[in-house]
């Protein structure tokens, strides 16, 4: 078992090497990505500033607290660009042209393989600028970060990444039945935009949806509350358990889909 795990990470390293050199062929992209990140951030900050102009606040969050939410959103967006989008869009394609068979006959965990097969360096500017923005708000606010809140932040961020990944993966998995499901991921992405703002800024109905139907709260608001020190320990534990449960569910769902795929396709 440990040998298998070792080999898959070696494999992924090899995959990432080739995908990075492939991507770096396109120099234009670096330029585009940097401009796009700067533009996106300044645009989002501008919209936020409109809300705060009249001294109002979003759902009880101050300006700098909302900026932290936006920063976390930017980090997750970068991860989506780098890992989720390039890999999970391939699943659909592989089901379509039948190359999924080649993956399934390999002696490695197919979910890990499919989820980490390629990496795109173009999400890195987003990830970096997200972290920079968080650091900046803390320097400006002259707040001191305790090691404890950094730890809590890391825990909640990891659980938010797991949740995000599971949502993407579950939708991508459905492509085994509905080959043209890819746009469902676009739907997911478009709803996740709500994560740019604290969830408590939404009306009660939407708050309910974003907490219980689509757990966007756990993606950005919860990690932000963790680093801002305004969160209860029980919510953190709940968020972790919830993410692990989703991860587990995504795996079960994948195995179920595969058994369907291998028995149904000819």
């Amino acid at each position: 078992m440990s040998k298998l795990n070792f080999s898959i990470f070696r494999l992924i390293k090899a995959f990432w090497n080739t995908s990075i050199s492939k991507e770096l062929e396109y120099r234009l992209n670096l330029f585009i990505e940097i401009i796009s990140v700067i533009g996106n951030l300044s645009g989002s900050l501008f919209v936020l500033s409109i809300f705060y102009k009249g001294g109002f606040n979003l759902g009880g969050w101050t300006w700098s607290e909302s900026v932290v939410v936006l920063a976390i959103y930017t980090i997750l967006d970068g991860l989506t660009t780098s890992i989720l989008q390039p890999n999970l869009s391939r699943i659909v394609q592989q089901v379509q042209d039948g190359t999924l068979d080649f993956v399934l006959i390999k002696p490695v965990n197919s979910q890990i393989w499919l989820s980490l097969r390629v990496i795109s360096p173009w999400g890195i500017p987003s990830i970096i600028s997200g972290f920079l923005l968080i650091t900046y708000t803390f320097i400006i606010g002259k707040k001191i970060l305790s090691l404890y809140s950094i730890l809590l932040f890391c825990l909640t961020l990891i659980s938010s990444i797991f949740i995000l990944y599971s949502l993407w993966f579950i939708i991508a998995t459905t492509s085994i039945w509905f080959v043209r499901i890819w746009n469902a991921n676009e739907v997911l992405r478009s709803v996740l935009v709500a994560g740019r703002y604290p969830i408590s800024a939404f009306p009660a109905g939407l708050r309910f949806v974003f907490t219980f139907l689509l757990p966007i709260t756990f993606l950005t608001s919860v990690p932000a509350e963790a680093i801002l020190g305004k969160i209860s320990l029980s919510l953190i534990i709940f968020s972790l358990l919830f993410s692990l449960a989703l991860l587990f569910l995504s795996n079960k769902f994948w195995n179920f889909a595969i058994s369907f795929y291998t028995s149904a396709s000819s």
């Binding site: 090497n17 050199s21 770096l24 062929e25």
Partner: peptide
């Protein structure tokens, strides 16, 4: 043209 490997890639970039 591009030489193989990371070094080649960066140089090519």
């Amino acid at each position: 043209e591009k030489a193989p490997g990371l070094k080649g890639t960066l140089k090519h970039f």
